[in-house]
Amino acid sequence: MSRTLETLAPILLVAVLLGLWETACRLTGVPAYFLPAPSAVAAAMAQDWALLLGSAWKTLSTALLALAFASLIACSLALIISTNRLLEKAVQPLAVALQVTPVVAIAPQVVIWAGLAHPDRAIISLAVIVAFFPIFSGALTGLKSTDPDLERLFDLYGATPWQKLQRLRIPSATPFILEGHKVAGGLAVIGAVVAEFVAGSGGSQGLAWRILESSNRLQTAKTFAAVIVLSLMGALLHAVLQASEQAILRRFRGR
């Protein structure tokens, strides 16, 4: 009983809020470019669904590709750096400096470097940059978080550095690396959207472009529709990554 209530509660809340919003719009007669009624947003969504889905796929595939690239680069770099303390110390401040720099701040320059004719390249690069750090720091932390007694045990039995890496460090790091990918997935979407905004050209055709285009034309209902599709997509990606993480960890630990 309470379980059903708990599932229904958020749906009910959204329904009530939407109802209030709709009523308020109708009663006050606020102009649609300022605040469209939920029904208008729904209508915009129904009308443009093919276009919106196409754009969502464009943004999502960019984010996924960026996630794959970021994963490859971050994991390899973490592996190399974890083998050498001095290297790690050398890289750390640089990594932190890059990490705290907002992606919007470097986006215009990346767009120029990628070539104004290739907004796609700039968008992918920026999404890779933001997705890189959580995976990198997760992998690096994980590679160093091995149980010191297990390390001693490997030493006692004369394990080679390669055996230690393969049979101890990498498995120990796996939960951290998975967590890093989950965070990075969400960031890759944000990175892709921010980059699309900065690139600001119709060349990209992602969800950010749909938002830019409709808001420039004061088609606010369409803007809302695109934003809703964007957040639904982000939530879906997060849910998928979360479920995969849980599933892999359950297999990994046996429960």
Binding site: D147, D149, Y157, G158, A159, R167, P171, R253
Partner: peptide
């Protein structure tokens, strides 16, 4: 050791086989 110090990702057999495989 005081704690069992097993590899959580490996089953009991794999944990026990470790010293032999490392040798």
């Amino acid at each position: 050791f005081q704690a069992p110090t097993l590899m959580p990702w490996a089953d009991a057999t794999t944990n026990v086989a470790l010293p032999l495989e490392l040798a």
